[in-house]
């Protein structure tokens, strides 16, 4: 028990130097050189740049494989490693995009390079902020809150009366599969061009997933646990608050996550049917018409960032609310 201390597998300075450190330095150097060559517009070097870029990419692939094979016992380090692997993959998509656009001289209208999109984002921050406020904060977020909350409340009420629950579940399931986005023109006629009509579309789109998932979640607690609550002589509302709602949380968060995507889609697409002259959907459809593709991509980048951050925030919240769930242990 005392003499033989097992050496942790895979942690070996020489091996790490050869397999991790050297390729990392080479990849960074190659990327900097290629990006410089492209920026200097030396077209005669383009085939060399392409070759170096592809070699760097293959090295990165190998590097990623090595990195993910590394057995790391520390949980935090291993999580950091997973993040690195994903980040390297994402960075290389952007890098190859930039290189291919430059080397093959893809027309700007077809696909602007990431650097041009980034420049456009930096140059038009006020416009992007105004569009973000109009579409995401006003239409999508308010609609998401009202829609999800009312779906949840209706589910809790319907759950009290089994008749309603049995009827609403199949109807809600069916409606969730319908192309609800089609009500956008109707809502624009009813509520006008401003954000209210977009929020209304989002409310209808998010209502049914919240309803269906909450109803399913309220049935997720086990029969044994419910029997236990009955032996405690707990009332319906006590059982609901102390057992069934906590048990339903994973389902409810699932609905909130689905709804966060639906809300952005609903708010943006609804703007195609008529808007004031601000908003992400408005900007996308007018700038496409003017062939300002970099502005369109800038809006998409903002939408992607907003969507991912919101989704990530929900995931963090879920983790802290449903800490007891087996998938986090």
């Amino acid at each position: 028990m005392s003499t033989v201390a097992a050496k942790p597998p895979g942690i070996d300075a020489g091996r790490i130097f050869i397999r991790i450190f050297l390729p990392a330095v080479f990849i960074c150097a190659a990327m900097v050189w290629v990006l410089n060559a492209i920026a200097a517009d030396r077209i005669e070097n383009s085939s060399v740049a392409l070759l170096v870029a592809i070699i760097a990419w293959l090295t990165a692939c190998w590097f990623n494989i090595e990195l993910s094979r590394l057995s790391i016992l520390n949980l935090k380090l291993s999580r950091l490693r997973d993040l690195c692997v994903a980040a390297i993959f994402g960075i290389f998509i952007l890098f190859l995009w930039e290189v291919f656009v430059a080397v093959f001289q893809i027309p700007f209208i077809l696909l602007p390079p990431p650097s041009a999109i980034f420049e456009r984002i930096m140059a038009s921050l006020p416009i992007l902020a105004a569009d973000f406020y109009q579409t995401v904060i006003k239409a999508a977020f308010i609609g998401w809150c009202i829609g999800s909350f009312s779906g949840f409340m209706v589910a809790v009420l319907a759950d009290r009366y089994g008749f309603l629950a049995r009827g609403l579940l199949p109807i809600g399931n069916m409606i969730s599969a319908l192309p609800i986005i089609g009500i956008a023109p109707i809502m624009v006629i009813w509520f006008g061009f401003d954000w209210h009509s977009k929020a209304a579309v989002v409310i209808v789109m998010t209502f049914f997933p919240a309803l269906v998932n909450t109803l399913a979640g309220l049935n997720a607690s086990g029969q044994m646990e419910r029997d236990l609550m009955r032996t405690y002589a707990s009332s319906h509302w006590q059982t609901l608050l102390k057992l069934r709602l906590p048990a339903a949380m994973p389902f409810i968060f699932n609905a909130l996550k689905i709804n966060s995507t639906l809300a952005l889609i609903g708010a943006i697409v609804a703007e195609f049917f008529g808007t004031p002259i601000v908003g992400m959907g408005f900007r996308i459809s007018t700038e496409v018409g003017r062939m300002n593709l970099d502005m369109v991509w800038a809006e998409i980048a903002v939408a992607a960032l907003a969507g991912s951050l919101f989704y990530g925030g929900l995931a963090l919240l879920e983790r802290s609310v449903t800490f007891w769930h087996p998938s986090y242990r």
Binding site: N64, V85, T261, I268, I300, F310
Partner: peptide, 24 residues
Amino acid sequence: VLEKSFLPWIIASQTIPILAIAPM
């Protein structure tokens, strides 16, 4: 290795409103 590198981006790709790029 695809699970660690590719799968997160597929999931992230769905948090962005894909329909927004439909007209483009």
